[in-house]
């Protein structure tokens, strides 16, 4: 940890100080520091900088904070540990460096967690995202019994093998901050590191939002609208994907049976299509929180989003960014 930092910037006193310290660490290592994706997502993994950029051969190192929305996890601001909106810091490194575990531990040192004083553990946690058609192996990283990060080696994304494999680190920022600040209630986190009248807490900023969104997510979200929006996003995604394929200059090739194959050259519009996939996923989460999707239907909605994600992954691999 940087001891010459002013008190209000120190990661153990300030939520924003913690974020800045991590961003600085990863910037220094060689990541591009992106800003959050400007859409509602359930986790930092949904950011195209992870989902799409982890596909294809091109090296890619990025870090960013992603506000994440989990409508079901709202507790009207009454639970000290659960939020329907929170921050993740996401690091994606492709290919995964051989010393990724060491890099991660260094990042903890950068925010004042000394592994000689604390009990840092890598506990099995295989990651799977049914909606993204993605899976990987890795761990939950524990600090003194608290899960502070997820560490994953992506094996498959959008149904495609990762070649090469990316390493993904996800820091649960509120948890981490609560830990280093020694705070029991998330709403009591010191956000800006100031004291007295200048102090702004996490609750000052988000408590009202938690109350309002919990009401919205569980009681009032307009389900008719959401059902319709899901369909719209789904069909728009498909429409954009279809329109984005640019045929190759040579005539279509035919398989033995005469069926047309292999004239899907480049794709020119995957990012806007993928936005609609993200949208569909978030709408599904809202419907799920409202309890209007039955267990059996749940599966079919997840499958529908996964189909979109897969089609986007396929299209991405036919773009410049995807290495085509």
């Amino acid at each position: 940890m940087n001891d010459d930092l002013p008190r209000h910037m120190r990661p153990d006193r300030s939520f924003q100080g913690l974020i800045l310290a991590l961003q600085r660490y990863w910037a220094d290592w060689g990541c591009v520091i992106l800003q959050p994706y400007d859409m509602e997502v359930g986790a930092g993994t949904f950011h195209p900088a992870t989902t799409l950029r982890s596909l294809g051969p091109r090296p890619w190192n990025a870090a960013y904070v992603q506000p994440s929305r989990r409508p079901k996890d709202g507790r009207y601001g009454e639970n000290p540990n659960r939020l329907q909106h929170y921050y993740q810091l996401q690091v994606i490194l492709k290919p995964s460096p051989d010393d990724l575990q060491e890099l991660y531990l260094q990042s903890l040192r950068a925010i004042g967690i000394d592994p000689k004083l604390h009990d840092i553990r890598f506990v099995e946690d295989d990651w799977e995202s049914p909606t993204l058609g993605a899976w990987g192996l890795g761990w939950e990283c524990w600090c003194d019994g608290m899960e502070v990060s997820q560490f994953t080696y992506f094996q498959q994304v959008a149904g495609f093998e990762c070649a090469p494999v990316s390493g993904e680190l996800t820091y649960g920022l509120e948890r981490l901050a609560m830990y280093v600040q020694g705070v029991e209630n998330v709403f009591e986190l010191n956000f800006n590191g100031r004291e007295g009248e200048e102090k702004v807490t996490y609750g000052d900023i988000f408590l009202q939002a938690e109350q309002e969104y919990s009401r919205h997510n569980f009681e009032y979200a307009d389900t008719d609208m959401l059902f319709a929006q899901f369909k719209m996003a789904e069909s728009a995604c498909r429409k954009y994907l279809e329109a984005g394929w640019k045929p190759l200059p040579y005539p279509p090739q035919h398989a033995e049976g005469g069926e047309e194959v292999g004239n899907r050259g480049r794709h020119l519009m995957v990012l806007p299509a993928y936005d609609q996939c993200i949208k569909a996923s978030h709408i599904f989460n809202l419907l799920d929180a409202r309890g209007v999707i039955s267990v059996t239907e749940r599966q079919s909605y997840i499958l529908r989003v996964r189909e979109l994600a897969k089609a986007c992954g396929e299209a991405w691999l036919a773009t410049e960014g995807g290495g085509a």
């Binding site: 000290p80 540990n81 004083l117 604390h118 553990r121 019994g145 608290m146 029991e184």
Partner: peptide
């Protein structure tokens, strides 16, 4: 998994914190 330099004080405090939060849940 470690003989901490402070004899485990920080580790214990951390675990007690987490268990408190979990039990509160």
């Amino acid at each position: 998994n470690i003989e901490a330099e402070d004899g485990g004080k920080a580790i214990l405090a951390g675990n007690e914190h987490v268990i408190r939060a979990r039990l509160a849940d």
